[in-house]
Computed example of a mutant assay.
Amino acid sequence: MKVLIIDEMHESIIPLLNEIKLEVDYMPKIERHDIISIIGNYDGLIVRSKTPIDEALLGNAQKLKFVGRAGAGVDNVEVEALKKRKIQLINAPEGNRDALAEHAIGMILTLFNKINIADQEVRNGIWDREGNRGVELMGKTIGLIGYGNMGEAFAKRLSSFGCKILAYDSEKTGFSNEYVKEVNLEEIFKEAQILSLHIPMNLQNKGLINYEFLNKFSNLDYLINTSRGEVLVLKDLLKLLKDGEIKGAALDVLENEKIRSLASEELSVFQEITQLKQVLFTPHVAGWSFESYEKINKILYHKIKKLIRNIDNL
C-alpha cells in the first residue's frame, strides 16, 4: 500500500509507516493541483491543514482507503465525501490532549495572576505589588462546553486545584466521575464562573458562543478558548469585556487567524481586543508541544495498523 503525506510531519512518521509495510511518499511542499493529479496512485493520505479534503480533491482518489489527520480537528475534511466513497477518516486527538490541557492551565494561571503584565512592568522598572494582586483558581466553578479528549484532559488537571468542574457535551452522556459532573447547559449558565470551550468547528458550532449565549450566564467572569476560533464571535466577546460583564479571557485561537489580511471590521475588533490587558493570547499552539508532535505520529501509526489489519481480514 502507498501513502502520500502532504504536510510537514515529525521525522518519525516514515519509519513507523514503513514498519507496517507502507510505501511512503513524503511531499510537504506539494501544491493542491499536484495532489489532485497524483492522488489516484495512493491507498492512504496523511494531512495536517494544507488544503481542504473535499469532493474536488477526492475526485480521482479511486484507491484511497483512509485519510489520516495529524491532529484533533477535522474541520478541513468533508466527512460526508469520505463516507460516500467508504474512505476511513483517522485523527489523533489523543496525541495532543496533554499538551493542550497543560497549556490551558498555564493560560488561566497567567491570566489570574497577571504574570504576563507583571513581567513586563518589572522589566520596565515598575514594582507594583497591589496592582498585580492575583485571583486564586482554587474553589472556582468551571464550565466545560465539550467533553472529548481535550475537555477530559483539562478537567483532570483542574481537579487538583480543588475546582468544581461542570461539563456539557451535546454528543455524549454518562461521563460523570470523581472530578467532573455532567450537567445540562442551564446548570452551566447558572453556576460557571469560568467557561472553557472544547468543541469542534462545524456548522452547528460556528458562532455558537455569541453575545446572546454569553448573556445567559449568571456569574461568568472568565472565558478560555483552546478549541476553534470560529466557534466564538470575537466582537461579542469584546463588547462584554469593555462593558465589564466579563473580567478576562484567554484565547489560543481566533475567528480569523490570518491576521495580516483581516477585513476592515475584523481588523478593528482585533486591534481593540489586543489592547485589553485582561485578555491573553497565544497563536494556536495549545496542543503544539515538542512531545505532541511525535505523539501524534504514534497514534496515527497504531490506528492505521489496526485499519490495515481489518482490511486484510476482509
Rank of each mutant, 00 (worst) to 15 (best):
A153E: 05
P200N: 06
D7G: 03
S196I: 02
L262I: 05
R48L: 07
I36Q: 15
I273W: 00
G73I: 07
V79N: 00
E121M: 15
K164V: 11
G71T: 03
A249C: 13
L82K: 10
A155D: 01
K305Q: 13
L314W: 04
L100H: 02
E136F: 14
M138I: 08
S292H: 05
T274R: 02
N202W: 00
F213D: 07
D34P: 06
G151Y: 00
I311Q: 10
G248Q: 09
D128L: 10
D243C: 07
S170Y: 13
S49Q: 12
V79H: 00
S218H: 05
K63F: 00
R85Y: 07
V135Q: 12
N215C: 09
D54R: 03
L300I: 12
A72C: 10
R228W: 08
N60V: 02
A153S: 04
S49T: 15
L240S: 10
A92G: 00
E171I: 05
A153T: 02
I224A: 07
M1S: 14
V24M: 05
W127M: 09
I194K: 01
K305I: 03
M27E: 15
G146D: 04
K295H: 00
N113C: 01
L251P: 11
Y42P: 06
P200T: 05
K86A: 15
N113V: 01
K242G: 13
L4R: 11
D221Q: 13
L314Q: 11
A72S: 14
I308Y: 09
K164T: 12
L240I: 04
N297C: 14
N310C: 02
L238Q: 10
I296N: 04
N116Q: 11
E255C: 05
L57M: 13
G151T: 00
G162Q: 00
E245M: 14
G73Q: 03
G139F: 14
I188M: 08
G139K: 07
A250V: 05
N313M: 05
